[in-house]
Simulated scan of single mutants.
Amino acid sequence: MSVADEKIAPGEQEASASPARRRRPSVHDAERFALPTLLVLLLVVFSLMPEGGDTFISLINIRTVLSEQSVVTLLVLALLFPLVAGYIDFSVAAVATLASVGTASAMSDHDLPVLVAVLVGIALGLLVGLVNGVLIARLKLNGFITTLAMATLLGGLVQWYTGSVAIVTGISPSLTAFGSLTWFGVPRILFLVALAAVVVWYVLTQTPLGRRLAAVGANPHASRLVGVDVESVAMRSFLIAGAVAGLAGAMIVARTGSATVEGSTSLLFPALAAVFLGATAITPGRPNVLGAVIGVLFVAFSVNGLTLAGVASWVDPVFNGAALLVAIGLSTYLSRKRGMTVSR
């Protein structure tokens, strides 16, 4: 009887396979839960620090940080759609700035109702997403350069429209109340962010569009061979990203009661750091909603803890930049390890 014909007893087969089975899950779990574990450790360390520890762990501080990160979280959710499809949209923060000006102007200059003004902001985001989609998906322009150019263009248009003057009058009190007040001790805006996160999770994981986005991001050539309209899928990713970024712009007005021409860079880099950090957690190597939210919390509470500890003001941008570099490096490594396409 040959070796191939020999039968292995069930117990022996299980024993021979069990070491590999035990090793693989442990490594995978370490990758999945490294960032959440670091977040917990970070919260513990900053809460025990003699300087600022009591303030850091206070309910008021936690609520303030979460409320301040609501717009960044929406931008992270916007980034996920093109990122899953294999693209990076550098224009989302500029789109949010444009939408905030459009929303504020609709109320201040044209006396439109709150809901209509918010829809104006979302419509502006959709318009920019459509242009991005046509240029990148249809005309095959480089996504990196195109969205970066779009961000610069939008910044100039906003300055031209506003005359570099913030819109601070005529904002509806009902909109600012939504952005600043609470329900049951929880900032109202967080309920919207939580709903948006659940919807994005559902679309990306439970719908045909989400599966097509993931397929195109993993291998656009193979996706085209099995009948996926790659250009259409990419177009939709930029459209949805624009709409969500437009909603984020409306929420800027709700949070601050104004619309300014500055701030897109300060929103973009924390969002990029969070979304790439999130791609190293939960499903390592793949952008995902839960990991992205954890990334937002990690970046936000790191900066908040350092600020309360009394570090210099330059630490904030240095930390964001370093976190972005580390996050891109780790997510790229994990993506290549799993044979996925690096974002383009």
Rank of each mutant, 00 (worst) to 15 (best):
R188S: 11
Q206K: 15
P82K: 04
A194P: 13
D89K: 00
S2R: 08
M49D: 08
L192Q: 10
I252F: 02
A274E: 14
P208E: 14
L290N: 07
Q206G: 07
S16T: 11
Y161N: 10
S100N: 01
G263Y: 00
L239Y: 08
L325A: 12
F33R: 12
Q69P: 12
V95I: 14
A197M: 04
I88D: 04
F191P: 00
G329Y: 12
A250T: 13
G86Q: 05
I171M: 07
E6M: 11
V233R: 10
D111M: 09
V289S: 00
G53K: 06
V303K: 12
G321Y: 13
G11R: 14
T73C: 05
A117R: 03
A194V: 13
A245T: 12
A99Y: 01
V44Y: 00
G121L: 05
V228Y: 15
A309N: 10
S313D: 14
M49L: 14
G129N: 02
A96N: 02
I252E: 14
F56D: 12
W183F: 15
F319L: 12
L42I: 09
T147S: 08
A279Y: 03
V128G: 08
V158K: 04
F319D: 06
N304Y: 08
A259D: 09
S258V: 03
F81W: 06
A234M: 10
S343W: 07
L42H: 07
T332H: 09
A30C: 08
G86A: 04
V44W: 02
D89Y: 00
A218Y: 04
R336P: 00
P220G: 03
A312I: 06
R23N: 09
V303G: 11
L79D: 02
S174Y: 15
W160Q: 03
F191W: 14
D109W: 01
A271M: 04
S100K: 02
I8Q: 12
V101A: 00
P208R: 10
A106S: 09
V230I: 00
A309H: 02
V275I: 09
P36K: 05
S91N: 01
D316T: 14
A241Q: 06
L267A: 05
V186D: 08
L239K: 05
A4T: 08
H221Y: 08
V293K: 07
G133A: 03
S26Y: 09
W183Q: 03
V134S: 02
I240N: 15
G291H: 08
I282Y: 12
L74M: 06
L267H: 05
L115N: 01
L112D: 04
T162K: 03
A243R: 11
R23I: 13
P36Q: 03
L157I: 14
T307E: 09
